[in-house]
């Protein structure tokens, strides 16, 4: 394997890791506040559709992104209504939202565009174009480092850089702000937060709103950055992989970056090589497809370190009277 191939694989690793990372951080905010979010998949999907549809209609990728974020936040609001206000089962609510997104996107796409549940392909204005970082071309001749800078670090769409910036930002919000402290507290001991006079429901709704925003970005990146338009079920289980990455990362932002890069790398390998020949035996492509899930089960089983979720996760908070 030469440097060019390695760079190509790593480049596609980055591209594939970004939607996972954004969704994973969305899940992180939500679950750290004590709301389990199975609906990451649906939020991403509905955001992907609305960003592509609006970007196509208006010719503006930014308006598309806003529409995607809005759609994703609507689903977040429903999730909040069901799991915070009416103290319903968060898992069931998430499952319902995934189906809602899966059905609504294809149905509206069919009614609006009549192209079999997809949006028309987006032209240049409707897509996020790749950004060339300064001196990318001038530095290219430098051996090894030049191509790494020009190919791997430069030449991604803005949302890729936004995605990476979200990691330190998430860390800073969670660990260094008053809001973050309260958010973490509400996921561990909501009764303590309530006693301190801070609204449990308010904090959880805020966390879900942030999750909606991040899933919106992830969906917009899928439909208007990674690809040129929406196709049915285009998230293809990424929301669940993000959920897996979140457990893998033990609900921490920097670990989430690592987990998402790892899962992105697996996807990149599976995309590039059908079957991997290891000499003695070949690894079929299906193993690569299944590997993120298998790894997650192994992690969940506690064979490789223990993943302890936020203590109050999944339980509705009932105020004492």
């Amino acid at each position: 394997m030469d440097l060019a191939t390695i760079l190509q694989v790593l480049d596609s690793t980055v591209r594939l890791a970004i939607p996972l990372l954004l969704a994973c951080l969305a899940g992180l905010f939500s679950e750290r506040s004590g709301i389990i979010d199975i609906g990451l998949e649906g939020k991403m999907l509905i955001a992907a559709f609305f960003s592509a549809a609006v970007a196509f209609a208006t010719g503006s990728v930014w308006l598309g992104m806003l529409a995607g974020i809005a759609a994703s936040m609507v689903l977040s609001a429903i999730h909040g209504l069901a799991s915070i206000t009416f103290r319903g089962n968060q898992l069931i609510s998430g499952v319902a939202l995934n189906f809602l997104a899966s059905g609504l996107t294809v149905m509206i796409a069919q009614v609006w565009f009549s192209e079999g549940g997809r949006t028309p392909s987006l032209m240049t204005g409707g897509r996020f174009s790749d950004i060339a970082l300064p001196f990318a071309e001038t530095l290219r001749p430098i051996p090894v480092l030049g191509p790494i800078y020009a190919e791997l670090i430069s030449g991604h769409s803005i949302l890729v850089y936004v995605g990476f910036l979200m990691v330190p930002l998430t860390w800073w919000v969670l660990q260094r702000t008053r809001f973050g402290l309260r958010l973490r507290a509400v996921g561990e001991a909501p009764e303590a937060v309530d006693t301190a006079g801070v609204s449990v429901a308010g904090l959880r709704f805020a966390a879900l709103a942030i999750a909606g925003l991040l899933c919106g970005l992830a969906g917009a990146y899928l439909a208007t950055g990674l690809q040129a338009g929406f196709v049915r079920e285009m998230t293809a289980g990424r929301g669940y992989i993000a959920l897996a990455a979140l457990i893998f990362a033990k609900w921490r932002p920097w670990y989430a970056l690592g987990a998402c890069l790892l899962f992105g790398f697996l996807q990149a390998i599976a995309l590039r090589y059908q079957n991997i020949d290891l000499g003695a035996f070949t690894v079929p492509v299906q193993v690569m497809d299944a590997l993120p899930y298998i790894l997650t089960v192994v992690i969940l089983a506690g064979f490789v370190g223990k993943a302890i979720p936020p203590r109050a996760g999944g339980q509705p908070y009932v105020k004492e009277r």
Partner: peptide, 28 residues
């Protein structure tokens, strides 16, 4: 008709939402 089959997925989602997650909204 022009109604896509995915309408059923939407109905299914609404049923899960109302009978499962929003149960208390009806019950209270």
């Amino acid at each position: 008709t022009d109604i896509p089959r995915e309408l059923i997925t939407v109905i299914q989602a609404l049923v899960i939402l109302f009978t499962g997650a929003l149960d208390n909204m009806v019950r209270m």
